[in-house]
Amino acid sequence: MNTFPHIPRERLPALLAAMPKAELHIHIEGSLEPELIFALAERNRVSLAYPSVEALRAAYAFTDLQSFLDIYYAGASVLLTEDDFHDMAWAYLRKAAAENVLHTEIFFDPQTHTARGVDIGIVIRGLKRATVRARAELGVSAELILCFLRHLSEDEALQTLEQALPYREHFIGVGLDSSERGHPPEKFARVFARCRELGLHLVAHAGEEGPPEYIRNALDVLKVERIDHGVRCVEDPALVRRLAQERVPLTVCPLSNIKLRVFGEMHQHNLGELLAAGLVATVNSDDPAYFGGYLNQNYLETFAALPLDASHAYTLARNSFEASFASAEDKARWIERLDQLFDEFR
């Protein structure tokens, strides 16, 4: 681990906000703020179950993953046109740029929209327009990862993949999200094998509410390259050693973990333990509109609650670039910027 003994703890908030970073675990539908939900509802003449922005925001009180998903899917009902998907992604990308995010790999859930009769092309084209615009206007590199909803069947996932293939050049990988309990990774072995044949990058949510076994099966059965969440790996020391030896990245989402009761309070979070074990942990925002903060807020609250210092900040930011699916040249360029920023603070 790099050491930065001359950066005092009181300077950490400024350092965390300023440092270049990547975000690898962001559900774009989870960035849909109540204000934009109401604006899109009005534009599309969609009636909502809440009378005001304030009432909707007050409903963001979750007891577990499923109670969050219920309101998450309701919020997505306002997304109907290509412009809607562009505007949602553009709002997130502007926030990301303001927080010194140089690269982001964005999850999207086409089944949430196709189930409502929205054509998958509308979803993908709208999101892609925003990522192209972000590179041109904000200098932010952004890619798309199509996620399958694990509470649905594998046949439905295979159908979704076939619907998406005409737009194959617009997304770089596939993932697996939604309700983890009762839906193990091996349920999707065939569709992930097909995606591997297509040359797509593979990631999967595992070890958030599900057991460490789900992490192992995501690696062995689905052959994923990254584990989304993965915090329950610590319950299996052999798995922790394997993750460290194989340098498997974990896309950890601290505020999400607290909001969904994976940990009771932030000072109980195991991010420091993951780093101490040599794991390639990263910090991400997951569903920031619902969980209380975008990427910088996740860094700030985590570092305020845990005994983490500037060395940990550097490691997490560097991990975020190294764990990305960007080119080696881009990674080297971003890490050079990270080094320059830490030299300035030191």
Rank of each mutant, 00 (worst) to 15 (best):
F4T: 04
P5Y: 02
A14C: 09
L16M: 10
M19H: 13
M19T: 14
M19W: 13
K21P: 07
E23H: 10
I26S: 00
I26G: 02
L32E: 04
L36A: 01
F38P: 00
L40K: 12
L40E: 01
A41M: 05
A41R: 06
N44Y: 11
S47G: 13
S47T: 14
L48T: 04
A49E: 08
A49I: 11
Y50H: 14
Y50R: 07
P51A: 13
S52Y: 05
R57M: 01
A59Y: 06
Y60V: 06
A61V: 15
A61E: 15
T63A: 14
D64P: 11
D64H: 12
Q66D: 15
Y72M: 09
S77D: 14
E82W: 11
D83N: 06
D83Y: 04
D84R: 07
F85T: 00
F85G: 03
M88Y: 08
A89S: 11
R94Y: 07
A96K: 01
A96S: 04
E99F: 01
N100F: 12
L102A: 13
L102C: 13
F108T: 03
D109L: 10
P110Y: 08
P110Q: 06
T112M: 14
V118S: 06
G121P: 04
G121W: 03
I124Q: 13
R125Y: 06
K128D: 11
R129N: 14
T131N: 08
L138W: 05
A142P: 00
E143T: 12
L144N: 03
C147D: 13
S153P: 02
S153A: 09
D155M: 15
L158E: 11
L161I: 11
Y167C: 04
R168W: 08
R168A: 02
H170E: 15
F171W: 10
G173I: 01
S179E: 15
E180I: 10
R181E: 14
H183S: 10
P184Q: 03
E186F: 11
E186G: 14
K187L: 14
A193Q: 06
V203P: 09
A204R: 03
G207P: 00
E209C: 10
Y214A: 11
N217C: 14
A218Y: 05
V221T: 11
L222K: 00
K223R: 05
D228G: 07
R232H: 13
C233G: 03
P237S: 05
R241L: 13
R242N: 02
R247F: 11
K259M: 10
V262D: 09
E265N: 10
Q268L: 14
L271H: 07
L275D: 07
L275C: 02
A277G: 04
G278M: 09
S285F: 06
A289G: 06
F291Q: 01
F291Y: 08
N296V: 15
F303C: 00
A304I: 10
L306I: 06
P307D: 04
S311W: 01
S311F: 02
H312V: 05
H312D: 12
R318N: 12
E322Q: 04
F325C: 07
F325H: 15
K331P: 05
K331G: 10
W334S: 07
D339T: 06
Q340G: 13
F342C: 05
D343C: 07
D343Y: 15
E344H: 14
